[in-house]
Design a protein around this nucleic acid. Structure first.
Length: 499
RNA sequence: GGCGGCGUAACUCAGCCUGGCAGAGUAGCCGGCUCAUACCCGGUAUGUCGGUGGUUCAAAUCCACCCGCCGUCACCA
């Protein structure tokens, strides 16, 4: 068994407000962290998230807002912190790339790699659009015009520093080949593999001249340059949890990360740049990089210009945090793209949460109220037969099933894990119908009703344990209503939404 | 264009690797029930398995070609 679990989300780039995609990654990571805390213990799980705050886009956004980049970042970071708080994201640490602890390690790493010869100076040549302040490469342009503004491009060359990606290409190909669980899901692994096989890696330009872009971490060996933002950002995964010793050896109680959860848009940086940076530093790669899909809005990409950006706060506010979490995790297999619509969210709400889970809890509470004066009968069930036996077996096998679903091997398949929990819920609802306690009550068969109720209580307790990672508020509300000898029946958990 | 993926019920998808009567959930329909949130339970219809051809006793599954959609092709964080 594993004895620790270190999980990370990307560091979100704070040039704009958080949207559904950001919240998806963090909800997934939060669910896994909560789940693992239940399995291996609170203290053995470390969940890191944070923000990426350097680079040209931030510098420009800050200028537009008439703030310094630091002031702008300090303001934007609150939106992320606030959202995570509202969504109940249980991170252990929140790192910002503008913090000293991070900058210190980035500079250390640059020094080590420079000393080692894996960072070297060279001339960068490219087509530059001065008004847009953007470099374009050969394949992106035609007729020497800027693809954005259609104005003329300038051929410029400047002195920069490069990191030797190419040196480690063969190593990376072998490593990916030998570690099937390193890049997940399979489709992403194939993408990376075929890219590496069909292209020769260019070395990565990791610096920007200060006169062109100053908002970054200064290179220790060249004050005229700052660090390229991706090189800076990736390092957070180690800068947050460890230090270099006097012999330049990295020490951390958490590294290697067990899981880097990312969106599929940043696969290359994580699956190619990052392992190579680590290899060059003689640090072990993360165990697994998992790239999930995107949420489409009504079958099209979400974008500001389309005006179809879904705000997590609006959705969570309108339907409840747990409902929002449940929908994102349940509706689409993790890894594939999903389509977000309020109609399908409402459908999930009514069929899964109100009809199945909510109603099971509510009808059970009512029966305890009615037949046992609100006290859960004691004693336990002597012998379970028939449906009660089947339910009991299902309860026993559930842990193992979910543990597989939520592993790298099982593809972190949240929707399937939830499906197995709902199988149990449905069995219980069916059991009520078969047992017909209302008839037993008429015949005054109180012992049979007692056994029946205890089976339902067992089911709800089990379900409660298992949904806690996914929908924590609901889990604790159920615990409050049904967790003690005397029940405390409240309002229905999920009142149906009329459509 | 190269590489990769997808196309199966009204909707979301599983099945394909390893050929053997086309499946699940949701929505629908019919019936039953009343503990419960007008819910729950039982039953039930539904398919040119994208198209054409091939291999085979047998193809959603294997092969070839075609059509449609999507991803990716490096420094945009």
């Amino acid at each position: 068994m594993r004895n620790k679990f270190y999980i990370t989300t990307p560091l979100y780039y704070i040039n704009a407000s958080p949207h559904i995609g950001h919240s998806y990654t963090n909800i997934a990571a939060d669910t896994l962290a909560r789940y693992m805390r239940g399995v291996i213990g609170e203290k053995k799980v470390w969940f890191l998230t944070g923000t990426d705050e350097h680079g040209q886009k931030i510098q420009r956004a800050a200028e537009d807002a008439k703030l310094t980049p630091q002031q702008f970042s300090d303001k934007m970071v609150l939106q992320f912190r606030d959202l995570w708080k509202k969504l109940g994201i249980s991170y252990n640490d929140f790192i910002r790339t503008t913090e000293d602890r991070h900058i210190k390690i980035v500079r250390k790493i640059l020094e080590i790699l420079h000393k080692k010869g894996d960072i070297y100076q060279d001339t960068y040549q490219g087509w530059y659009c001065t008004p847009c302040e953007t470099f374009w490469n050969q394949s992106q342009i035609s007729e020497q015009l800027c693809p954005d503004c259609k104005r003329g491009l300038e051929r410029i060359s400047e002195s920069n520093y490069f990191f030797k990606l190419s040196k480690y290409q063969d190593w990376l190909i072998r490593y990916i080949n030998d570690h099937p669980e390193f890049i997940r899901p399979e489709i992403r692994r194939n993408e990376v593999t075929s890219f590496l096989r069909n292209n020769k890696l260019n070395d990565l330009c990791i610096s920007r001249p200060k006169e062109r872009m100053s908002w970054g971490i200064p290179l220790p060996f060249s004050p005229a340059h700052v660090t390229y933002v991706w090189f800076d950002a990736l390092i957070n995964y180690v800068s947050a949890v460890g230090e270099f010793d006097a012999k330049d050896k990295y020490k951390s109680e958490w590294w290697p990360a067990d899981l880097h959860l990312i969106g599929k848009d940043i696969l290359r940086q994580h699956a190619i740049y990052w392992p190579i940076i680590l290899k060059a530093l003689d640090i072990e790669p993360p165990k697994c990089i998992f790239a999930h899909g995107w949420w489409m809005i009504n079958e099209s990409k979400m974008s500001k210009s389309r005006g179809n950006v879904v705000s997590p706060l609006d959705m969570a506010g309108k339907y409840g945090i747990d409902v929002y979490r449940y929908f994102l995790l349940r509706d689409v297999p993790f890894g594939l793209d999903g389509n977000f619509s309020e109609a399908s969210l409402v459908k999930r709400f009514n069929s899964d949460l109100a009809n199945d889970l909510g109603n099971l809890v509510y009808r059970t509470l009512t029966m305890i109220e009615k037949y046992f004066q609100s006290k859960i009968p004691g004693g336990g069930v002597a012998i379970k037969v028939g449906e009660a036996k089947a339910i009991s077996d299902k309860i026993t096998s559930l842990d193992e099933k979910i543990s597989l679903n939520l592993s790298a091997l099982g593809g972190f398949n949240f929707s399937q894990a939830l499906e197995s929990i709902w199988e149990l819920i449905n069995m219980a609802n069916k059991y009520v119908e078969q047992t017909k306690p209302w008839n037993l009550a008429k015949e005054n068969k109180i012992d049979e009703i007692k056994d029946f109720i205890l089976v339902l209580v067992d089911v709800i307790n089990k379900v409660d344990d298992q949904i806690a990672a996914f929908i924590p508020q609901t889990a604790s509300s159920i615990k409050e209503q049904l967790g003690k000898d005397e029940i405390k029946k409240g309002k229905p958990l999920f009142p149906r939404i009329q459509t």
